[in-house]
Amino acid sequence: MSELHQAAAAADLDQVEKLLRQKKCNPNQKDTDWGNKTPLHWAASKGDVETARLLLDHGARPCLRTELGWTPGHFAAEAGSLAVLRLLHSVHAPLDKDDASGEKPVRIAEIYGHKECVLFLRRYDVNLAEVEGWAYRKCAADKGISVDDDDEEWEGQKKDEGKGHQ
């Protein structure tokens, strides 16, 4: 676990900021000892919106997945952190991705009884993903901006695993 992972897991905003300013840590580094969690996954799992915002401001990719396919959205839903879910939504993070078991963040929030998160994610799933998400993607495409929706490494791993089952 890197220093940045440790600081994010401990919700130590000052240390996260110090490490990011020094530019010695990659905010997108996956920790293989902890299931490929990034510092943003840790911040989301703690419901730490300020650390999550700081990581995003320094280039953390909200689409990256753990080895089980969890995005930061899944962790925020598990933690019941509506603030982190709203932050992720504000940067157009994918909040509707299935994990390796086929569960979306909304289902995780349901399992843990986080009603406000469920309502937010259902509204996102029905309205925002279709209307606002589509509009954002079209605008980005028109401007030649890449929409960072997928974790290519995880998608490739998923395809490799599927080949073994044929």
Rank of each mutant, 00 (worst) to 15 (best):
K18Q: 11
A11Q: 03
A11K: 02
K37I: 12
A43D: 07
C25S: 11
L54G: 07
L19K: 00
A52G: 08
A44V: 06
E17I: 07
Q15D: 06
V16D: 00
A44H: 05
N36M: 14
A11R: 00
Q22Y: 02
V49M: 07
W42Q: 14
W42I: 09
L20S: 01
K23C: 11
G35R: 13
A44L: 10
K37F: 15
K18V: 07
R21D: 10
A11C: 04
L13F: 12
L40G: 02
E17S: 14
T51K: 04
E50L: 01
D31H: 05
L19Y: 00
L40D: 02
N26P: 05
A52L: 04
W34S: 12
A9P: 01
H41R: 06
A44K: 04
T38N: 07
L13S: 09
V16A: 02
T51Y: 04
A10Q: 12
K24Y: 03
D12R: 05
D14T: 12
C25K: 03
S45F: 11
K24L: 13
K46E: 12
W34L: 12
L54E: 11
Q22H: 02
K37T: 13
N26G: 04
L20R: 00
H41S: 04
L20T: 01
G35F: 14
H41F: 10
K30C: 14
N26H: 04
L40I: 11
E50H: 01
D14L: 07
L13M: 08
N26F: 05
